[in-house]
Design a protein around this nucleic acid. Structure first.
Length: 195
DNA sequence: CACCCGATTATCT
DNA sequence: GATAATCGGGTGT
């Protein structure tokens, strides 16, 4: 198995968001290996008003301006963490891909305990849910995910273009014209609203 | 230092 | 389907 490398993330943010579909996230947690396939993503770039980095670099979003292939984890709505991967071409100052949903593959019993539910479709079908399912918190902000640490991503075949759906992003007020949310069509773990 | 509001989720009807 | 919960970053006094 091959890890996603630095060049993979050194490309157009929107392209990386599409290509991340179908890839496998590995999380080593207290001796067990949790695995999930990425089934839903969103792209955010620094010239996009919906992006945290749009108004410039701050202490909170500095990971988005750092080296590509690192994680950007932030806290929102008082309750939830969201996981992003930094990705952009060299001429862009900042950009990243929000991971919105996974299909659970390994360690499902552990994930059920972390999520406090047995409903398989409720485990990782939202950005705040999947961070809870993988026990990801602020301490993961800025870590390198191209190395075999507690969190990394391994390669998998590209999803064919005709199996990828593009829609407007969710939960934002600016930039709704851009179709930068990507899903794997017909995957039962993609939330069905706005399919 | 106070105030405002968000890339959401759980729960109850 | 609607609504409350809940924390900290960002902005401005």
């Amino acid at each position: 198995m091959k890890l996603l490398n630095r060049p993979f993330f050194t490309r157009d943010t929107v392209t990386v968001a599409k290509d991340l579909l179908g890839k496998i996230i590995i999380r080593k947690y207290e001796g067990t290996v949790l695995k999930g396939m990425i089934v839903e993503t969103e792209a955010y770039t620094s010239n996009d008003p919906a992006c945290h980095a749009f108004k410039g670099k701050t202490n909170r979003n500095c990971a988005l301006f750092g080296e590509v292939g690192h994680a950007y984890v932030y806290f929102i709505y008082g309750n939830h963490y969201c996981l992003n991967f930094v990705a952009r071409t060299n001429d862009m100052p900042a950009g990243g891909v929000l991971i919105r949903a996974l299909e659970p593959i390994n360690g499902i019993e552990t994930i059920k305990k972390l999520r406090k539910t047995n409903n398989i479709h409720e485990l990782t079908n939202g950005p705040g849910k999947l961070t809870q399912a993988l026990a990801i918190d602020r301490s993961f902000n800025g870590i390198d995910i191209t190395k075999k640490n507690d969190l990394y991503v391994i390669d998998a075949p590209l999803i064919p273009k005709n199996e990828i759906g593009a829609t407007s992003r969710i939960g934002i007020t600016n930039g709704q014209d851009k179709l930068w949310r990507f899903i794997i069509k017909n995957n039962p773990f993609v939330p069905k609203h706005r399919a």
